[in-house]
Write a protein that binds this DNA or RNA. Structure first.
Length: 448
DNA sequence: AACTCTCACAACCGCCATCTT
DNA sequence: CAAGATGGCGGTTGTGAGAGT
């Protein structure tokens, strides 16, 4: 951890990182078997390694110590892990103490890569059981008695671990790591909010037309988290949003429909307007309600793919409240001969996008925050997120779903991300980078 | 055959607790 | 007692190998 972590040994000079070579392993083994590790921070120097002490410690504890078992987990071990995890939660070190020869890291990886997935899959099948089994959100543990015959396991999920099954509902398994998951809010009708008086917790709003209520079968938000939520509540169809905007935006009660987001303290504001309503770029100076501002903004933005506006300006009320914008569009990545890894390619191209942030946007929107661009796949899963002008996260597991078909452009191959999330601060880059980005749809996440 | 995707897991990061000075 | 060093832990990310197309 060359730039932090609080370990001074890791900040000095150059330390090697990444996978350990057999030579390094041998040096570490030789040193520790003959001298013991003593103070870990001095081990690398004494052992002749260009590693930080922490890395040496980790390598020894997890892989080199002679008492490690290695190999696949047995069915008994898997069952024990599930049992212990129900009691202990993610206290991997505690769990590992009950599994001789296994390390916390090993148990953790096993859980994350194998068990968790299977528990989720199974619980999804039996999701109709889930609504009444949420724990108290304040509870930090689940008190389920261990049973010798696993009477709580109501089925099988894997031939390798035939007795391992979860009673957790999907919500809990998904966030089982923290055991603090709040149950989904009980929402029986769409929520409305008065933008003119956000301090009012119970805004006085006109009713929505009945057509805006849809039942649970019309789930549109593809994220797994949302699926869990929206299975049981009524939501607004995004296709109706343009209607809502026009039908409900009387000047006395400017309202915007929104649905409760995944996070308890935030909301998602979603719009899907495919036809321009107001042919105007930037802020509508004659807008008499915030709805008109919104219409103007959305329309302006969406029409920018064909004829980019000179600037995109967030309405003032939005500048402080819109958390992020999601654009369904395309980032094209031209591939060079030496690049064959799609994930790196996408990352590079997205980085190029964010490096071209127009500094004027900050003054226009009043948002001085660091630009954020997040790439998502088609299911809403985050692939990459920018932070301090660099992408700090890059998963590639679901890249396929995030990429349109590879196609030819000027003898180079291009890849594309289909969904780009960015904060208002970043929106100004869109028109400047029109060749990279062709927005089709905006989804706004707000803090209204 | 070439390329991409998925999976498993090694390794890193950051935080916190404890120890040492 | 305070501050820094170190150890421990859990979350997260990066990467290689093999499967899939």
């Amino acid at each position: 951890m060359g730039h932090g972590g609080g370990h001074s040994c890791c900040n000095k000079q150059k330390v090697k990182r990444g996978l350990w070579s057999p030579e390094e392993d041998e040096k570490l083994i030789n040193y520790i078997t003959s001298h013991g590790h003593g103070c870990w921070s001095s081990v690398p120097k004494l052992a002749g390694l260009q590693r930080c002490g922490k890395s040496c410690r980790l390598r020894w504890i997890n892989y080199l110590r002679p008492d490690l078992k290695r190999g696949s987990f047995s069915a008994q071990e898997a069952t024990l892990i599930v049992d212990l995890h129900r009691i202990l939660g993610n206290r991997w070190a505690q769990i590992a103490k009950h599994l001789p020869g296994r390390t916390d890291n090993e148990v953790k990886n096993f859980w994350n890569s194998s068990i968790k997935k299977k528990l989720l899959a199974h619980s999804h099948l039996s999701s109709h059981h889930l609504t009444t089994t949420f724990p108290n959100p304040k509870t930090t543990n689940i008190h389920v008695p261990l049973t010798g015959d696993h009477q709580y396991y109501d089925g099988l999920f894997d031939a390798s671990y035939p007795n391992v099954i979860s009673q957790y509902p999907p919500h809990m398994i998904h966030n089982q790591d923290h055991l603090l998951q709040t149950p989904p809010p009980a929402i029986s009708q769409p929520l409305l909010i008065n933008l003119d008086n956000t301090n009012d917790p119970t805004p006085n709003l006109p009713p929505l037309p009945p057509s805006f209520l849809v039942n649970s079968s019309s789930v549109f938000d593809p994220t797994m988290e949302s699926l869990n939520y929206y299975d049981h509540i009524n939501i607004l169809k995004p296709e109706n949003y343009d209607i809502i905007l026009s039908q409900n935006s009387d000047h006395n009660h400017p309202i915007i429909p929104f649905k409760l987001g995944v996070q308890a303290n935030s909301f998602e504001l979603t719009t899907n307007i495919t036809q321009p309503i107001i042919n105007c770029h930037g802020l509508n100076p004659s807008a008499s309600s915030q709805i008109e501002y919104l219409e103007t903004f959305v329309t302006d933005f969406l029409s920018s793919s064909s004829s980019p506006p000179s600037s995109l300006v967030l309405p003032p009320f939005m500048g402080s409240k819109v958390k992020s914008l999601i654009v369904l569009g395309t980032i094209r990545c031209l591939r060079h001969d030496d690049e064959c890894d799609g994930r790196k390619l996408l990352k590079k191209s997205a980085q190029d996008l964010i490096e071209n942030i127009d500094e004027d946007v900050a003054s226009m929107t009043g948002d001085n925050s660091t630009p954020i661009i997040e790439l998502e796949n088609s299911t809403g899963k985050s692939l990459m997120m920018s932070e301090n002008n660099s992408f700090v996260r890059s998963t590639h597991c679901d890249l396929k779903r995030n990429l349109e078909d590879v196609y030819e452009i000027d003898e180079s191959t291009s890849l594309s991300a289909t969904k780009i999330r960015m904060n208002p601060r970043s929106v100004g880059t869109l028109h400047a980078k029109e060749k990279l980005l062709t927005p089709k749809l905006i989804k706004m996440e707000s803090n209204f």
